[in-house]
Every structure is written in C-alpha cells, then in structure tokens.
C-alpha cells in the first residue's frame, strides 16, 4: 500500500508541475477580475453587453431564451433590457444588427463574434483589454490599446470610465467612479464567461448528484469485491 502512495504521489506531482507549466502564458502582465460568479453578476453583465457591445458584436451561439432557462431572467426582462426592439426572435440567436458589409466599411474587418472569446483569450485578457484603452490621435478611430496594439475598436465604454492618454493622464473623467467602472467591466467579463460555456449552470446543478451516485456505486462495488476476495488465499 505504501508503495502505491509513493507512486501516486510521484505521478500527481509530475502532473501538477506539468499542468502549471502547460498553462503558462507568455504575454504581457494581465489583470485578474475579482467577482462572485452567479446569476446576478451575469445578468448585470448581459444588460451592459446588450446596451454597449451588441450594436457591433454578435454572440451567435447564444439564444435569448437561454437567459431565462439558465439564469432565471423573466421573459419580460429579456425583452426590456436585452433584446433589440425589432427584428429579433426570443428563441433566435443573439446576433448584432450591424450588417457585415457596413462593418467592413467602418472597421476594415467585421467585429469578431464574442461567443467563445473568454475561452479563446481567457477572462483576464478580456478584462485587461477593456481597461487598457487610451487616446491616440494617430489612429483613425482615435483610440489605441496596450493589450491589443492598433486595435480597430473604439473605447465604447469611455463615457463610463473616462478617457486617458498614452501616459495614463486622465483627459476626461468618466460618469462612474473608477471602482464602479471596474465592477461594470467585471460584470461584462462574467457574462462573456457564461456565454463561452452556458453549460456551467446545468453542470453545477447535476454534478453533485452524479458524483454522489458514482461514489455510492463505488462503495457498494468495493464491499462486493472484498466479499468475493475472501475466497482468495
């Protein structure tokens, strides 16, 4: 038995080492959003996303109805806060109203679909990116970003967060306090994290039951095995 413990320890140690190393990111230093991941945060983020992001960005894998099924929003609230007044179906996907050819004309490239953005870039990246805009008169949009240099997107959150120049000097204060603004960005990140894997709700609901059942089965099987192996001398 002691031997197994040593073996398991060695294997786990190696795995832990390896996993830490595999996950290592070689990019610039990222900020980490701190928040509780629950329906309240996600819904707050969904409202902000609908107001400030969805004019350009789609989340084409999401459907409005998922917000009621998974997060417990009422259908009326989804209609009021999230859905565009016309041209979208409750069971339809959350697609931006901006036509693709217009997007090409305005930004050179269509704004990316954000369904999987947190999966792809990590939530730290999205959080840091949204907080890293600065005024740059040399860019056509007038904006630049530390995390994503020469990005085509303007800082749509500037009215809340204010405007800074390249050196971090505040050119115009935002409508919200810096603390509140960070909270808002955090909510958007929470929403995008949810969008990148809405199964989290069902997984958290079903997980304990499935694991409990499996543990029960394992215990019964262990006693059955012990009983039969009494024969083996």
């Amino acid at each position: 038995m002691k031997k197994y413990v040593v073996w398991a320890g060695m294997t786990l140690g190696l795995l832990a080492n390896a996993s830490g190393a595999f996950a290592a990111d070689n990019g610039p230093k990222m900020l980490t959003p701190h928040y509780t991941y629950n329906a309240k945060t996600i819904i707050a983020g969904a409202k902000l996303f609908a107001t400030d992001c969805m004019a350009c960005h789609s989340i084409k894998f999401m459907r409005y109805e998922f917000l009621t099924q998974d997060l417990g929003m009422s259908k009326a609230d989804v209609h009021k806060y999230i859905m565009l007044p016309t041209g979208s179906e409750f069971k339809g996907t959350m697609v931006s109203a901006m036509p693709i050819n217009m997007a090409h004309k305005w930004f050179g490239l269509p704004p990316p679909d954000l369904s999987q953005m947190v999966r792809y870039k990590s939530q730290d990246w999205v959080y840091t990116y949204l907080l890293s805009f600065y005024r740059d008169p040399q860019r056509p949009s007038g904006w630049n970003n530390y995390v994503f240099p020469n990005v085509a997107m303007p800082d749509v959150l500037a009215p809340y967060g204010g405007i800074v120049n390249e050196h971090g000097k505040v050119l115009r204060a935002g409508d919200e306090s810096p603390q509140k603004f960070k909270e808002q960005v955090t909510d958007i990140v929470a929403f995008l994290r949810f969008v990148s894997d809405p199964s989290v709700v069902q997984r958290d609901d079903d997980g304990p039951w499935v694991l409990g059942l499996l543990v029960l089965f394992t215990i019964f099987a262990y006693f059955l095995k012990k009983e039969y192996w009494k024969d083996v001398k």
């Binding site: 059942l213 499996l214 029960l216 089965f217 019964f220 099987a221 006693f223 059955l224 009983e227 039969y228 009494k230 024969d231 083996v232 001398k233």
Partner: peptide, 26 residues
C-alpha cells in the same frame, strides 16, 4: 491451504443487488 470455506451467500446476494441497482442508476 485449500480454497474451501463457506462463502456468505446472503451477504453476496445482497451486495450484488446493491451493485446492480446502483450500477443501473449510473
């Protein structure tokens, strides 16, 4: 030395039933 001893049949049946039922649930 030999493998002859009386297995506890009731206990085995009972445990087999438990494993079968929980296995079916799994």
């Amino acid at each position: 030395q030999d493998n002859k001893h009386a297995p506890n049949v009731t206990r085995r049946r009972f445990l087999t039933a438990l494993v079968t039922v929980s296995g079916a649930a799994v």
